[in-house]
Amino acid sequence: MSKQNRAFRELGPLVALIALGVFTAILNPRFLSIYNLQTLGKQAAIFGIMAIGETFVIMSGGGSIDLSPGSMVALIGIVSTYMIVHGIPVFIAILVSLGLSILIGLWHGFFVNKLKVPAFIITLGTLTIARGMAAVITKGWPIVGLPKNFVMIAQGDVVGFPIPVIILFTVLLITHFVLEKTVYGKHLRATGGNEVAARFSGVKVEKVRYIAFVVSAFLSGLVGIIVAARLSQGQPGVGGTYELYAIASAVIGGTSLSGGEGSALGAVIGAGIISLLWNALVMLNVSTYWHNVIIGAVIVIAVTLDILRKKSLARSK
């Protein structure tokens, strides 16, 4: 029964995503142009990859949340492009940047597990520190003059599929497998569902959370590289409030803020909805001033509806 339930949970957001797409396409057929779909795909990839990481952290429970993804995007974008313009080979620069992301994830895990600092606080720290460091490194200026093989990461495509979309699907496949098919996935759900019982059952709760924070930081770093490549420059100001879209995507996709429930697929669908909404607002010529207002309202409505739906499901049992 838990299985059927899980499949069903993603159905609601998926229907919303498709409906929104059809609606936009009818009002403005240009929505279906290859160019627009590619743009949309890139945006969805950026939010989707971050939302998957966020899902890992939120699922681990105990009030865990990661507020750092937006700033991580800026910092890792800066670190990787800085190395590249200083003559370090692209491949090495990317590896080192991702390594740094993992270290930051471990840093979060250390504070949460060992020092019992709330995840909200330690990742809030990173939110300002990482963005600050990005500005320190560049003194506020963008880093330009990136080689073609770097910008290809975001601007290239394979038979029409932008590379970020391919990266998104790769990440989705791996994380979906990890969450649904591995011992780690089960332990993550157990930790989020009931930390004490999980510990009493021999689950290494702390290790589980360490990994969740590392996954989130790693994926944010990955997005940092994609965003820098997309803009053809390292930008210390990029990615502001991205963490909020990552959280919203995860929640729209069925992740429970109290932990224990969620899926990678749901997170990607949630990110799809938010990205599609941005895109639709542009396509439908809605004044940019209204964009934030509408997106915020949709997030609130979507999550409220989902909670009401779950409530009525629980009652009908």
Binding site: A190, A197, F200
Partner: peptide
Amino acid sequence: LQGLILQMSVKDNIVIP
């Protein structure tokens, strides 16, 4: 509080350790 992960299935609880 300590023995079960309540929202998980009977099967998942039994095999978790």
